[in-house]
């Protein structure tokens, strides 16, 4: 007991609230979900307290078709969600990278204005903003009206309820999450390093590959994680703009809890999603750690 210094005690006191909060409201539910995923579904929701491994079997292939049926469709859905999340991540990155450079070169006033504009959507509900996109994308919507008025199209493009609409919506929703961390790492780059690279003979693309990209990698990773994880679970955009024709892992989990009354299976799907995300994220974090200067 004596070995704790005053400072250590203070640290413990300072960290205690956050630790308690995370422990109760984050780790706790996670543990409950982990436990539930191994239980038998109750007839009307809830669980029966019997060990039941068929939930995982249904997804991963050892269900015997007697209690539960194995179906590849769940892995397909997981893969498709991951694909959409990956596409969203890459596209937001593509949009945000040049924008971050452009804005970081602006005057202080221009920067402030642009950052304000980028965070502006946070002030209103996502659902309302997606409804606005419905008004834009539908056949009688603004996008088609404008293109028609310009004589660029003779009949509506059929954007609404398409995968294009889903991708547009996803990019729109997640751009701020990508932009902000990216911008903060882009802005930190010392212009002299870029000059130094040029000076040492690197053409612009080489400079980008060998200096700019590695130095903004923490921002790229942070932004990618911030976009990838919520877009993996997002089902609102596919539902509203894609017409719910495509099931995402988020829809599937919602379906299990609210309609199929199969909480353990919903918990199983969530656990599988969390585990695969943890694997991906820790892989990336590991890579970043390796490449970062210790400071």
């Amino acid at each position: 007991m004596k070995s704790f210094s005053r400072q250590q005690k203070q640290l413990v006191l300072l960290l205690a609230p956050a630790t308690l909060f995370l422990g109760i409201f984050f780790i706790g539910p996670l543990l409950i979900m982990a436990v539930y995923s191994f239980l038998e579904p109750g007839l009307y929701g809830g669980v029966e307290w019997n060990f039941y491994h068929w939930n995982y079997g249904r997804v991963l292939g050892w269900a015997d078709g007697f209690y539960e049926e194995f179906d590849l469709v769940y892995l397909e859905i997981l893969a498709r969600s991951a694909g959409l999340a990956l596409a969203t991540t890459l596209l937001t990155l593509l949009v945000c990278y040049p924008a971050a450079f452009w804005i970081s070169r602006m005057s202080t006033r221009g920067k402030a204005l642009c950052l304000f504009l980028i965070t502006l959507p946070f002030f209103s509900s996502m659902i309302i903003r997606l409804y606005a996109w419905i008004l834009i994308l539908r056949d009688s919507g603004f996008a088609n009206q404008i293109l028609d008025a310009l004589g660029l199209i003779s009949e509506p493009l059929g954007l609404m309820y398409s995968s294009t609409a889903v991708v547009i919506g996803m990019i729109y929703i997640f751009v701020p999450f990508m932009f902000l961390p990216l911008y903060s790492s882009v802005e930190k780059i010392d212009g002299k390093l870029i000059q130094a690279s040029q000076d040492l003979g690197a053409a612009p693309l080489t400079t980008f590959r060998k200096v700019i990209l590695p130095l903004t990698l923490p921002g790229v990773i942070a932004g990618s994680v911030l976009v990838f994880i919520p877009s993996l679970g997002n089902f609102v955009v596919p539902s509203m703009l894609g017409g719910a024709k495509v099931v995402m892992i988020g829809n599937l989990v919602e379906q299990q809890f609210l309609y199929a009354r199969n909480w353990p299976f919903g918990a199983t799907l969530s656990m599988l999603m969390i585990v695969s995300m943890l694997v991906i994220v820790s892989f990336y974090l590991f890579k970043v750690m390796k490449n970062q200067p210790q400071s």
Binding site: E69, E76, I77, K245, N251, Q256, A260, N262
Partner: peptide, 10 residues
Amino acid sequence: YDRVWTKFRT
């Protein structure tokens, strides 16, 4: 029903 629904949606 859940299975039919998932098949249909997928």
